[in-house]
Write a protein that binds this DNA or RNA. Structure first.
Length: 243
DNA sequence: TATAATGTTTGAAC
DNA sequence: AGTTCAAACATTAT
């Protein structure tokens, strides 16, 4: 479920409930769900992997983590974490994190770090990377304060496209390659979105879960990389290691 | 059946 | 006091 583009699809899936009143609400979320009752949804927004349900004076923040799911006008067997019923349908969330953000949502988020937001600012990412020259690029790409919305699939595909080894040290990577990586984090996210909507995302993976490099036919390595120890898939022949 | 997977927060341990 | 790391959460496919 998780990476940014999937949350954008979620936002599109629930557009029918924008401006609608919550007729009834339930769920085992740790927040006081009764607060939503009879309130009208102003907007659905996303920030990276965060799905935001905006009301007048507060916002419900939903994070799918690894296993979150949702249903529109359907229910699963299990107890919903949060269930919203409207006059024109219902929206159910399962196994996700639900939190409340008080006040103006703009005071909680810097939209310019979201790679899929219209305010996305690659220059800001460049500055942030410049402030961590000793970190591995594989860790920085997953940093939600720099590339909100980018997850492990996008990380691997971006680095493969840019011919950069995931364990490369940021300060050692040529500036032109850094710029390309930054740009590709946004570009690939929109391609991810396009393919996922057509249910053909996986067939476009070039390195993630692959075992043979499609460029040189040599083996793709799989390794837990960086401080985060997330799986990286890469070709040591095609992806340059800068250390 | 055991394992790993699109993720993040928390709090103990050092 | 700052950093590191395991645990926790929880579901599904291989």
């Amino acid at each position: 479920m998780p990476e940014g583009p999937s949350i954008v699809i979620l936002k599109e899936d629930v557009h029918q409930f924008t401006g609608k009143k919550v007729v009834s609400v339930s769920g085992d979320a740790s927040i006081d769900v009764s607060r939503l009752k009879d309130k009208t949804i102003n907007a659905f927004k996303t920030w990276g992997k965060h799905f935001l349900i905006c009301f007048d004076s507060f916002t419900v923040k939903i994070h799918m983590l690894m296993f979150g799911t949702y249903r529109v006008n359907e229910r699963k067997e299990s107890t919903p974490r949060l269930s919203l019923v409207f006059e024109n349908g219902e929206l159910n969330f399962y196994t996700c994190s639900v939190k409340l953000l008080e006040g103006d949502i703009n005071s909680h988020y810097d939209w310019s770090v979201d790679v899929m937001n219209e305010s996305w600012d690659p220059k800001k990412a460049q500055i942030s990377l410049g402030e961590m020259p000793d970190k591995m690029i594989c860790d920085a790409i997953l940093d939600q304060n720099i590339f909100a919305g980018v997850g492990n699939i996008i990380k691997n595909e971006v680095l493969y496209r840019c011919y950069i080894h995931p364990e490369s040290i940021i300060g050692k990577i040529p500036p032109n390659d850094i710029s390309q990586i930054i740009a590709e984090c946004s570009t690939y996210s929109f391609e991810f979105l396009y393919w996922k909507k057509k249910f053909e995302l996986k067939q476009h993976w070039e390195v993630y879960t692959k075992s043979i490099c499609l460029r040189c036919n040599l083996p793709i390595l799989k390794k837990q990389t960086g401080d985060r120890k997330r799986s990286s898939f890469f070709c040591t022949n095609c992806q340059e290691l800068y250390i």
